[in-house]
Amino acid sequence: MKVVVALEARFERTPDGAIWTLVGFAYSFWKRYLDVFDQVCVVARVKDVSHVPSDWQRVEGEGVSCFPIPYYIGPWQYLIKAWAVQQAAQKSVGHRDAVILRVGGMIASCIQPMLVKTGHPYAVEVVADPYDSFAPGSIKSPVRPFLRWYSPRRLRDQCLEASAAAYVTQDALQKRYPCQNFSIGVSDVELGEETFVSQPRYYQEKTAPFTLIFVGTMAQLYKAPDVLINAVAVCVRDGLDIQLILIGNGQYRGELEAQAQALGIGERAIFLGQLQAGEVVRAQLDRADIFVLPSHQEGLPRAMVEAMARALPCIGSTVGGFPELLPAEYLVPPGDVEALAAKIREVIANPDRMARMSARNLEKAKEYTEEVLQQQRLIFYRYVREQTEAWIEKKNQSI
């Protein structure tokens, strides 16, 4: 049986027809579905390019294909291409396919009404909370208030009508978006043995600057790099010797660099751009002292779990799955610059506390090893396949 998985990822296609990704959703990600399904069809946005950098990875491979959706970024581009996107998305699903929608997102929203109309069962993987995604400060769009009102309602309907749901959190997303049928909480983080360091870190008084590190997209401001830059400026103004490493890219990078310059911390805010996931990013994490991700929205933040596996002390916000990863004392309200600056100062001032955070985070990250999580995912995949097979058999009997 083939499983169609629809998601909001953005890929690039070279003239030879190969489809590529830099961050996440490479072939290794999709292989997990092949433990239960015979084929995987990935439905996502695809842009045609002349070439990709050498560090990009293939999406397709043995048993994994891609169904391209017209490329768009943001609400306005979607509105311009809405009809073409809807037509393409609805053609991606066959009558005998199992369907998993990674929600919320526009592509899933194009497919789901068709499935409901025909009675075709579908499952959802709930990876983010649109109520937080469209919170003030997260995106710059005049339609943001409407999207914050509409999108959570749409997601609740999608979850209620799904035959099964997998949530990347253990509790947070389930409360807002319940599924009345089978559900399970399992992260989509991938942590292999090479991801973990062997022991916690030891901290002592430093003469060199403390290094904070941020890993996240700059295509939108969901991850709040602007809030972090403001907080670092407050810390520097108060006499703290720190620097900030930012890994990620997107349309707001230039604006964020200008923000750092305007605040007088241009030399302390180091923008590395988009780095290849894996060893390259881990090397930067190992050089840093504290990982900070003050997001406006999250499911379960993969970047933070990876930082925890490197035994980094971490500071996050109170949204999404952060409270499942960190104690409340290391969380701040989203968008609160002063609270974030105070938390950074508080943590850096206590090397013993940082060492305890390091040990605690490394141990917590071990709950997210691939071996543990895949066993939970298999329960979900098998249920989805069984439900689809039962529906197909029932439909055949009625003919």
Rank of each mutant, 00 (worst) to 15 (best):
A6G: 02
A6T: 06
A6L: 02
A6N: 01
L7F: 15
L7P: 12
L7R: 09
L7W: 15
L7N: 15
E8P: 06
E8D: 14
E8V: 07
E8M: 11
A9R: 08
A9C: 12
R10Y: 10
F11I: 13
E12V: 15
R13I: 04
R13K: 09
T14V: 02
T14W: 00
T14P: 00
P15C: 03
G17V: 13
A18K: 14
A18M: 08
A18I: 14
A18E: 15
W20Q: 08
W20L: 12
W20I: 15
W20G: 13
W20F: 10
T21C: 10
T21Q: 02
L22P: 11
L22Q: 13
V23S: 11
G24L: 07
G24F: 06
G24V: 05
F25L: 13
F25D: 14
Y27L: 08
Y27T: 10
S28V: 11
S28D: 09
S28F: 07
F29I: 12
W30S: 03
W30R: 00
W30G: 01
K31L: 14
K31P: 06
K31R: 15
K31G: 13
K31H: 14
R32D: 09
R32A: 12
R32N: 09
D35E: 15
D35P: 12
V36I: 14
F37G: 00
D38Q: 05
Q39T: 08
Q39D: 13
V40K: 01
V40L: 03
V40F: 01
C41V: 14
C41Y: 03
C41D: 12
V42K: 01
V43A: 02
V43H: 01
A44T: 15
A44K: 05
A44F: 10
A44Q: 07
R45C: 04
R45M: 06
R45K: 05
V46P: 01
V46T: 08
V46L: 04
K47N: 05
K47S: 06
D48V: 09
D48C: 07
V49H: 00
V49F: 01
V49N: 00
S50C: 11
H51A: 15
H51G: 13
H51R: 11
V52K: 00
V52E: 01
V52F: 00
P53G: 11
P53E: 06
P53D: 11
P53L: 09
S54Q: 13
S54D: 06
S54L: 06
S54R: 07
D55Q: 02
D55I: 05
D55R: 05
D55G: 03
W56M: 10
W56N: 13
W56A: 08
Q57D: 12
Q57C: 09
